[in-house]
Amino acid sequence: MKILVCVSKTPDTTSKIAFTDGNTKFDENGVQWIINPYDEWYSLVRAIELKEKDPATIVHLVTVGGADTEPIIRKALALGGDEAIRINTDNSDSYYIAAQIAAIAKDGYDLVFTGKETIDYNGSSIGGMIAEMIDAPYISLATKFELNGTTATVTREIEGGEEIAEVALPAVVSCQKGIAEQRIPNMRGIMAARTKPLKVVEPVAADALTAIVSFEMPPAKAGVKLVSPDNVAELVKLLHEEAKAI
């Protein structure tokens, strides 16, 4: 079993979001970078669990980004995985990024794991695109994943519930909460990560089909209207007559 885990670098969840250069660039000033939580907590940990069950399993990590993504990749390797591949390019277009990962993924992997989305661009698109590019089935928003030989049993989220499906491998799966429990790297893992191979490859030719023109912050709230806890009827009146929300 050979698993490719897609890892992305994102700002920490507590980061204050701001923009520079006339709102065309994300302001990286003072931003802490982390592994995209969905990639780290769910897809990477599930891949590591599968390797713990069957030590013959090979787990490779892949990321698309410049040299500044390497601390994140090392941190991911400290959790587990045999080696990492960094595709040396920077772009925000999902088609372009997916084409880079697909070029690696078609190289004999049985499974490609992604997080359900990245917490910066929230596209939920890379997994589906990779799957289309390598002509493999795609299960999105998986909350459980079990291997049974050449197929897998996956539970995925649907509106108001869940669906259990059998899927033939190779397949692409986007992972979310439920599929694995978050882990913290231990000292042995951190030491081992230092010497694990980190290959840098140059991007393949691909088109970027979108580009970010500018960013905007949402309009600020007008301020809260406080109602006395002894006058709950007033809140209901406001919600009904002023906000027209009920």
Partner: peptide, 20 residues
Amino acid sequence: QTGKAVAARVAVRLKAGLVA
């Protein structure tokens, strides 16, 4: 949930830029 599963694949088939 369906859009998240399908739109990206359709975009690739049509070689279309996607805003998700």
